[in-house]
């Protein structure tokens, strides 16, 4: 996609995100949009790992949980929020390192199974270590995020906190994917042997991207914990990990912009009544009752008929409208949101 179009889309989205709390007084919608932001951070991490490097993870929810529990626990113990955040991200990143090491030898289905197993083990861990996590009752009374005297206690403040982090994360991730390390990730996806023959230390790069992806998962978990004020194991399930994979796949492998679009669409799906007010009650109920089935169908249909996802579709659309196709340019093609 032409960089001018991309720039225009990014500017428009940024302005939209910035003015929404002022035009949208409905707190429910702000809450939904904050969750969109949290999911975007998760998906940015998964997009680097899965969308770019081609390493599937069905255990991202575990990193989300590690970040949320660590930070929640630390903050309740009186640790300042920024330190709790660093702790949450660090623990999740260490979790990523632990799963990266055995996963280096695994590919495809085997990697999927290993990461799925890791996610299930962590879920069990969250449930059973009651003294730290509160077990299935969860961890309650997590204080809101604060930096010194600045407290993010209102919905609008929380919204801006989360979306500021989203902005930073997306800029940093976009910087990575269009430069040397991003090319190394895509090379590993394309041909690991070929990547080695180009002098890429594939072991090192894979560990790096696992850790980075886990750290971003932890960051999202931290924001979630201090946003909701309560975490319990039911949030960090395989179900959530699968939805994240669906978001990346819908957006298009190897496209950050696509992943953003996929995340926004799928996160909003169950709240369609709040986003599009005029919808008939029966339609809304149908969508809400079948949300999970729709996710599953989206995944299957995208795999079958739209392997390049929304990003590939947007690219071909732009090409058709006479723009010169900058083929292979993979960043920021997500105008669909």
């Amino acid at each position: 996609m032409r960089s001018s179009i991309r720039a225009a889309v990014i500017v428009a989205l940024t302005i939209g995100v910035a003015i929404t709390p002022f035009v949208m007084t409905d707190r429910y919608i702000l809450r939904i949009l904050t969750f969109v932001g949290i999911n975007l951070i998760m998906v940015a991490g998964l997009s680097l790992l899965f969308g770019y490097a081609g390493q599937i993870s069905l255990g991202q929810a575990a990193f989300y949980g590690l970040g949320a529990y660590t930070s929640g626990y630390l903050a309740k113990a009186g640790v300042p929020w920024l330190l709790a955040l660093v702790g949450g991200v660090a623990v999740a990143a260490i979790g990523g390192l632990l799963i990266a090491l055995p996963s280096l030898r695994l590919k495809g289905h085997y990697l999927a199974m290993a990461t799925l197993g890791f996610g299930e083990i962590m879920l069990f861990f969250f449930t059973e270590t009651e003294s730290v996590t509160g077990g299935s009752n969860g961890l309650r009374g997590i204080p809101a995020a604060s930096i010194g005297p600045l407290e993010f206690a209102t919905p609008v403040a929380k919204y801006f906190l989360v979306w500021s982090v989203v902005g930073i994360v997306l800029v940093l991730a976009a910087n990575i994917v269009r430069r040397r390390p991003g090319r190394a990730l895509r090379a590993i996806h394309g041909s690991e042997t070929g990547a080695q023959a180009c002098g890429i230390d594939t072991v090192r790069v894979k560990i790096q991207v696992f850790v980075l992806s886990a750290g971003l998962g932890g960051l999202a978990g931290v924001l979630y914990a201090h946003y909701v004020g309560f975490v319990s194991p039911s949030t960090f399930t395989l179900h959530y990990s699968l939805i994240l994979v669906t978001m990346v796949a819908l957006g298009g492998m190897g496209s950050l912009g696509g992943a953003v679009a996929g995340t926004v669409l799928l996160t909003l799906l169950p709240y369609v009544d709040a986003i599009i007010p005029g919808l008939p009650r029966s339609t809304v109920e149908l969508i809400q009752d079948w949300t999970n089935d729709i996710y599953g169908m989206v995944l299957i249909l995208v795999m079958l008929f739209m392997p390049r996802g929304l990003a590939g579709w947007a690219t071909s659309l732009v090409t058709r409208f006479g723009e010169r196709d900058r083929a292979g340019d993979s960043v920021g093609q997500g105008g669909g949101a």
Binding site: I176, R179, R180, P181, R183, A184, A187, A195, C198, G199, I200, Q208, L212
Partner: peptide, 12 residues
């Protein structure tokens, strides 16, 4: 450009 990986330095 991937071929130049070993001769360039920029990391994550």
């Amino acid at each position: 450009l991937v071929g130049m990986h070993a001769r360039t330095r920029v990391g994550f």
